[in-house]
Structures are given as structure tokens and as C-alpha cells.
Design a protein around this nucleic acid. Sequence first.
DNA 1: GTCTACATATAGGTAGCCTACATGTAGACT
DNA 2: AGTCTACATGTAGGCTACCTATATGTAGAC
Lengths: 111, 111
Amino acid sequence: MNPDALRGHMDALLLSVLEREPLHGYAIIEALQERSGGALNVPTGTVYPALRRLERIGYLSSEWATVGGRKRRTYRLTETGRRRLEGERSAWREFTNVIGSVLRAETSGLT
Amino acid sequence: MNPDALRGHMDALLLSVLEREPLHGYAIIEALQERSGGALNVPTGTVYPALRRLERIGYLSSEWATVGGRKRRTYRLTETGRRRLEGERSAWREFTNVIGSVLRAETSGLT
DNA sequence: GTCTACATATAGGTAGCCTACATGTAGACT
DNA sequence: AGTCTACATGTAGGCTACCTATATGTAGAC
């Protein structure tokens, strides 16, 4: 997967994976792999800064937890984030329609 | 349309629009608008450098023409570019499948 | 004489994603 | 006791594609 292709879609992925339940960063990375059938291997250097950014702008909130002696920062969707996810979903649909309409180059207009 | 979303898909758009016939930059911009139903308004500062880049790496070739007193640089797909377009198309399908599979968050696994 | 459409081009800014590295715990295995 | 792997978070710095803004010029309409 060309890394640049993810540009501008990372937020949608992260918000989407947090929709059903709060998760910590490491678990988010695993969830992305699972849901994509192994295709998405997003590095920590991408995910952790992105989560912080999303928290900073109010789409996520986080709190620390200690599980089995290890510290986790668990992120959850805020109400704003949930609305944002809806926006991301419809933006995704529009995006695929637009690009798809160009790539599906019907050579013939009328027969 | 969020500009960042285009990242990594510009090449596919440009190659695709040149598939049926050679076009010059200005006409390419218009073709992208038409095919996308007006959604794609790609600025000249994006298109012209991208076309040069695609020529440099061998996907396009170009030649100057003068039409109605105006100079045009007309781009056409090379054989390599045509093969590349096929690659871009299948990459696009995979990309949308992967992202789509994450965004389509089926909350229930089995009923 | 001015305005719009046509037509190409580049310098410089922005920002998000990645690589590479740093840090630390827990548990298994030797 | 030492090593290795999985778990877990984080940052600094680089890359690069896309955009904004600007420059330059022709043709035709008004």
C-alpha cells in the first residue's frame, strides 16, 4: 500500500476503529490490521502523533490505565468525534465516487 | 474536496484522462472537471509540475504545438505509462477495498 | 483600452505520513 | 542471570506531493 494514498484518510480510519469501543494505541494498530485483512500496517510513528492531534482538536479524549503492570493510554470518541466520523464517512463516499468516475474512463459516449 | 485526499492519486487521474487521446495541460484540467461532474478543480500549480514529473519518469511524452497563435504542450501516454495506468487502476481498487473494509464497521460479527 | 479565456510555468509554503530511535515492563526460555 | 519477544508509548527529523501566489503572454470581444 502506497503510504501517500493514506493521506487525508488516516483520521477516518482511527475514528472508525474507535466507534464501538475505546482502545489504546497499540490495540488500534492491531485492529486496523485485522479489519483490513492484514493490508494496513500503520507504524507507531504515524498512529501516536495522529491520536494526539485528534485529541487536541477535540475528536478524542484519553485516560491512562495500568493493565498487567503496563501503562496504556486509552482513547475514546467524543460526541464531536462521533459527528466527525459521520462527516468522514460521507466524504469518503464522495471521494471514491469522484475519483472512480474519472478512472472509469468510458471511451464511448453514445453508440 | 479535501486536497490531501488527492495525495497519491493524482498520477492515476492524469494518466487516466490521457488514455483515449493526447491532451495539453489546460485541456486536462477541463477534462478532470467534466469527468468528475465539477468536483475536481485541480489548480495549474498542481497539474503542470505533475505532468513534468510523469514525463521525467517515462509515463508521458510531450511535444509543442501552436494552435490559433497559442502554444500548447501536448502530452501523450507512453507504453510504459499505459501499463502504469493499469497498475494504478488495480491499486485504486485495492485501496478502496482496504479503507472501505475499515470504515464499514460491522459492529456485529454473528447474530 | 480593458477584460476574459486560453495557456504554461515556478518559487515557496504546508502538513501529514514515515523512518529511526529511545524508553520501559512482563514473561518465557536457557 | 541473561536474552529474547511481545507489549506499549513517544519524539525528532525527513520526505514529498499538493497548493497558493505570482509571472508571463496571446487572442478575441466589447
